[in-house]
Design a protein around this nucleic acid. Sequence first.
DNA 1: TAGATTGTTAATCGATTAACAATC
DNA 2: TAGATTGTTAATCGATTAACAATC
Lengths: 218, 218
Amino acid sequence: MPPGQRAPVPALERLATYHRHLLDLEQESVVTISSAEMETHTGIPAAQFRKDLSYFGDFGTPGVGYVVTELRAAIDRILHVHEEQCLLLVGAGNLGAALVGYPGLMEQKFRLVAVFDNNYAKIGRQLWNLEIYDVARLKEINSVLQARIGVIAVPRQAAQEAANALVDAGVNALLNFAPATLRVPSHVMVRNVSFVQELAVLSYHVASVASVEQPSDR
Amino acid sequence: MPPGQRAPVPALERLATYHRHLLDLEQESVVTISSAEMETHTGIPAAQFRKDLSYFGDFGTPGVGYVVTELRAAIDRILHVHEEQCLLLVGAGNLGAALVGYPGLMEQKFRLVAVFDNNYAKIGRQLWNLEIYDVARLKEINSVLQARIGVIAVPRQAAQEAANALVDAGVNALLNFAPATLRVPSHVMVRNVSFVQELAVLSYHVASVASVEQPSDR
DNA sequence: TAGATTGTTAATCGATTAACAATC
DNA sequence: TAGATTGTTAATCGATTAACAATC
């Protein structure tokens, strides 16, 4: 509760998970829920749920639990997803196209407002309902749009350049799909999404399970 | 070095990062590299690099460093990416199509060998060079293919069912793109890739940077 | 040999888990 | 009031960082 301590990033990630489940519960017209019940839904321990929330305030009632709608709304505000968030996308390839068309984005008030590429064959074309702009115009265009989150969906070699352009345009948060280590100023947060890295971890696991011979658990 | 201790998952994730940079260094014909030099490349502290490797053995030479090619090959074997890994994909939507076409996969010896969907409008069609099969045939088909890693790229509502089908077909590692909490047997490892969750963390950051007023660092 | 750099041990840090007094 | 469940403090756990003896 005392805002002296900063919430750990893992707590923020879990907050997003709680949020998703709370939306489900709202749909099912569940009115209140206890931390123990949340545990059965999310698989995250009740103590951790309460601890995570405690970084931001008091949201529950002892002996009762949490009002689903209120808690969902509170997390909306914490994560700042209660109002529309604009996103810029750099890279109009397969992955970029999949992101623009991804229905989960607008479900959560994220809106892709502009797409950029450096390939002249693509510039000026449409990606779904959005025109593809020259990445050289990023700063100019964002001076109007004022988006603060950028999505990088370009090949590895172009990733740093895309990051530079986005930061220069006033973006201070990057979702990076390229398998590259980005250098950014300290006020910019980067979240990497790397399929290949995830697959490597799974690959390690598969090999180790195979070597132990698959136990017949469950 | 003593294999009594199990490597932490964060160490495995970093191993994949080291691997990527070592491939770059090989391209540039760099012969040896020290942990300090790796730090400048990857941004990961030298001490952590050495510690991470120490879970798996001795790979360097005091006073010299690491032979790039040897270390890359050693990590290949640790992550089990030295031989081709077959992947099954469930979900032939936009995201699935982007994954099949993603060049980074085959660069790293991951090969998507079959695509499944439950939409009869899609079954029998081609996705790039692969035929889309009925998800009901997953077990039958994998009894031949023997893939051990599955990729879930279906809508949230269908994710658990896809996971069940994959596990039933002998898969013990899942890369899940659906924003859902999957229940799986304990021998199955799940890695979640959730754009929206990542965006929520970034959204929190953007809001907090804005509230402090952007410092003029860097 | 002297200089460099490893692998490892010990110290630090931070996050998770457990326990419980406060409170509805 | 009695029962339930919170928010928080303290204990535990695990990962990161620092320091250094071993070694090329």
